[in-house]
Structure formats: C-alpha cells, structure tokens
Design a protein around this nucleic acid. Structure first.
Lengths: 203, 203
DNA sequence: AAGCACTCATGACATTTGTCATCCCGGATG
DNA sequence: CATCCGGGATGACAAATGTCATGAGTGCTT
C-alpha cells in the first residue's frame, strides 16, 4: 500500500522536481501538485491523501495556515513542512498548526523520502539544528500591533507611510517601533525588521 | 550521445530533486551535483560537461562569477542560469558573464529539460517576462561605491556602522546614501536598499 | 475590585538622517 | 588644456527618527 502524497510549493521548478524525485520511490505516489496553499485541504480530502508536503512561503494561503486547514479537513493526513529559510519561529508555529514534520530545503535529498515515511508512520521529523535554534530564540516577544507595524515598515517607507498603512497616528507608530526595537535588540528600525524576520516573528 | 550536465545549487533538496528530474530524460546525464560555485569550473573540465546549470544565489562563489569561470575554463560548455528571484539586473550580468540561458524557478518543470537541450544546441533561452523587465529597468545607475555603501546598509546598521565597514567618513557615507536614494527613487535608506536589491543592482 | 497587559495617543527632547554647497584629487575625454 | 566624472571629505541646516513620560480606554486575571 503506497503513501498518497500531495505537494504544494510556489516554485514550479522545485515542485516538479520534488514530485519527480519522490515519485521514484516505490512506496510513494504523488497524487497532486499545487502552486499555492488555497486548494490543498480540498485536494487532500478529495484524493484521500496520507501526507501533505507544504512550503511555508507561498502566495495566497501560507503554509502554516494551509497546514491548519489540512488538519481540520482531514485529521488522518499528516503534514510535512518544507522551507527555504530556517526561521526558528516558523517551526513552533507549524507544530502548533498541527504539522508532524519540519525540514529545510538544504537537507540531503535522500532523507526527504525517509521524512515522508516517518511522518506517515506518525513519527515527528524535525531538523535538529532548527530545533535547537528554536529553543534558544524562544517565542516572539512582539505584540500583534508591534509585529503589524514592523511588517508595514519592512518595505522601507517613512513613519508617515506606516501610519497611513496601519491607520495609526505617527506618534503611535514611533512608539511601537521603539518598543519593537527594544525587544528585538535592533538599534534601528531596519535592523529590528531584519532581526524579527530572521526569527520568523513576522509570520 | 547524451548531454553531460553539471548542477550547482546550494539547497540540497532542490539540487537533488533537479538532478532526479533531469536524470529521467534519456538524452541527459547528470555527471555532478555541487553545493556551491567554487568547484564548478573544475568539475566541468574534469568531467567534460556539455552544460552547467547554476543557481545565481550561492554561498562562496556566486552563480554569475561561477558562470564566468566555467566559460573561461571550458568555452565549449554552455551555462544555464536558474534563479529563485527574477531580478532584472541579474539577467544582463549573467549574459555578460557568458551564460546562454536564464530561467526562474517557477517555470514549468517540463520546460526545464527543453531549456537544457536548447542551450546545448547553442540557442539562447531567456524568460520572456524577465527579458521585458530587464529592458525597462535598464542598467544600474549606481556607481561602485554607492552600491558598496548600500550593501553595507542592507543589514540595517547606523551610518557609523556603515562608515566603519566601508572605511569611509560618516559624512561621505551620508553623501553616497543620498546619491543612491536619488538614483533609485527611494525616500529612505531602507527603501533604496530594497529597490536596488529588487533590480539586482547589488550583485 | 485591583492589577496588569495591550492599544492608542500627545508632547517634548536629543540624535540621527538626508540635503546641499563646497572643496581636493586623479583619470578620462573632449 | 579644459572639462567632466568618480572618489573622498567637511560643515551647516532642516527634517525625520528614536526615546521618554504621561494619559486614557479596554479586556483579562486573580
């Protein structure tokens, strides 16, 4: 009995290559390839998939939300997250969303099929390096608004821009930015954005 | 007679998957997989490769430099660049470095093998969307130092940090930043960094 | 009911940025 | 030879940013 696998990744090249690689395994059958997160839950139900392999960074519905949707729609289907960037914060969020595994894209290719089998068996698969980082980095210290403001600041606009985007007064924006800088340890707005992003605190 | 292909990409998962996908083609033989750009030229010579598939973003030697190295070491070997981000500036730089093709990672998987065959035949393969963007975006307006300073600014440090990193006076740094902001159209330092990065003007 | 954390806002203040004029030097380029 | 361009620097000035104290309202705990 083969493992029925659904793959979702926004980069078509990666998605296709991944499907080809895993399709070679005799015990794995790739039943669907999606380019974004929106249709994943439906596909899992419709095709009675056993495992869903999801990229964290995707247009439309992101991987974390898609994972939660899959778990809701089909609790018997395991979720394996695959990501380009090993942001510590992502790991915890993904696990809370019901993922069974979390690997980064520079893990050796042969380990991937094994990871799929493990999560299918109900085991958890977590990149050990990432797990360690996740423990040291801990939870996000940012409040929702602080994260919102940092996100709005991430494309480099002025305080006025951010205030407009977040529907806040300029003074308030500066306060939140100041708080975010203190909590992240950044000395400038841009540094705070970078640090928060690297930790996966901005979603 | 098969096409002897060398693949270099820093993400092991992608690299392996790509190799698996292309290895399925009867007329393509993957003779080497590398994780960075440093050994590519040597590998191409040693293995008498016909085509080198290189990622632009790699640790150590970047893809553009690796492409130039390959062309120098073995002019008969064609280079196909593959990139995650469709930065217009990369395209021109890659072509100037001697690449024959340039595709982004979200092109359909089946077109990839065809792209390899095309560059092997001596044809050029360029993502049409990217080609158009490249024309509108044009050359980098930044001088070398301006780009240096922007790069140093890209991790969010203060003017003092940048000055130290670039061995310049703080006033000079501010002048270069000001010039870079004017040329990129950014209204803040961070925005200028983002715009320059998006255009592929920072390497 | 009191305490606490989060949200939103002002106003005042010291720094930091961004802008501009101006200078010197060296290498192209006319 | 003169001129222009890039690299490097200084000083002055206006605007933006970062910091802090303070206040008020909401909602959740204990």
């Amino acid at each position: 009995m083969t493992i029925r696998l659904v793959i979702a990744d926004d980069q078509a090249l990666v998605r296709g290559a991944l499907a080809a690689l895993l399709g070679l395994e005799p015990d794995i059958e790739v039943v669907a390839e999606l380019g974004d997160g929106t249709g994943v839950a439906d596909a899992v139900v419709e095709l009675a998939a056993d495992v869903a392999m999801l990229d964290v960074e995707m247009p439309g519905l992101d991987g974390i939300s898609a994972a939660a949707a899959v778990r809701r729609a089909s609790p018997s289907c395991r979720v394996l997250m695959v990501t380009t960037f090993g942001r510590p914060g992502y790991l915890k969020r993904a696990m809370q969303a019901g993922a069974s595994g979390f690997v980064v894209k520079d893990t050796p290719a042969r380990q991937l099929a094994e990871a799929v089998r493990r999560v299918h068996r109900g085991l958890r698969v977590v990149d050990p390096v990432l797990a360690a980082e996740s423990l040291t980095s801990g939870d996000s210290p940012l409040t929702e608004r602080e994260a919102d403001v940092l996100r709005a600041a991430s494309d480099g606009g002025t305080v006025a821009d951010i205030a407009k985007a977040a529907m806040l007064s300029e003074g308030t924006v500066r306060n939140y930015l100041s708080a975010a800088m203190a909590k992240t340890g950044g000395r400038t707005r841009a540094e705070a954005v970078r640090l928060a992003e690297d930790n996966g605190w901005l979603l």
